[in-house]
Amino acid sequence: MSAGDWKELFAAACDGRIELVRYHVKNGVDVNYAHPEFLSTPLVACILARQPAVADLLLDHGADPLLLSELEALTPVQAARQAGLAELEARLRAMGAPDPAVPVKSRGGWLAPFRARLPGWAC
């Protein structure tokens, strides 16, 4: 996997370019990777960009419904709740995601001051 392919997949996921996302997924780009420059997962980023069809595609191709996205400090189900995507939230809950009202601790914690200043920068 090259970072360029992942970055293109990430941008396409945020923009809702589902065919380009499908192309990269079929060519082996890791849908659970969070590039060190982004620190966001494609799944959470596309959910926050209100792209539920892309989120469904990523989930169909192995995106982890429980994976915390470090930059936003959100799991996919928390992002779906925040974005108001009730059907996607229900799917994530059916896949084992916990109630989005329950807080999830960040793995690092050092990003908190930056998150506050850069909300939604990734998409």
Rank of each mutant, 00 (worst) to 15 (best):
R115G: 02
D99M: 08
P65C: 10
L85Y: 09
V77M: 06
A116D: 04
I18E: 04
L118M: 14
F38T: 07
L85F: 04
D99N: 13
L39R: 15
G4M: 07
D30G: 08
P119W: 09
T75I: 07
L66H: 13
E72D: 11
A73K: 04
A86V: 15
D60L: 08
D5P: 01
T41P: 01
A97G: 15
R107K: 13
L68S: 05
V102L: 15
A116E: 15
I18R: 02
N32V: 07
A45W: 02
M1W: 12
C46F: 10
A63W: 03
L39H: 14
F38G: 01
S106L: 09
A3V: 10
V102R: 15
P103W: 12
M1C: 15
D56H: 14
R115T: 11
L57Y: 01
E72I: 05
V104K: 13
C46L: 05
A34N: 00
D15V: 09
A13M: 08
R81G: 01
P100S: 11
F114A: 12
V77K: 07
V104M: 07
L66Q: 06
V29K: 02
A13N: 01
A83L: 04
E37P: 01
L39N: 12
L43K: 00
L9Q: 03
T41D: 03
V44G: 03
N32D: 11
C14V: 06
P103C: 11
A34I: 02
W110G: 06
F38D: 13
M95L: 15
A3Q: 12
A86M: 13
N27L: 07
F10T: 02
K105F: 10
E37H: 11
D30T: 05
L39W: 11
R50S: 12
N27E: 12
D56T: 10
D60A: 15
L88F: 03
I18A: 02
V77P: 03
A73S: 13
H61V: 04
L67I: 08
R22I: 06
L59E: 10
G96Y: 12
I47K: 00
E37N: 12
I18H: 00
E37W: 10
C123K: 02
S40A: 15
L71E: 07
L43W: 01
R81P: 00
G4S: 13
C46P: 00
A97K: 11
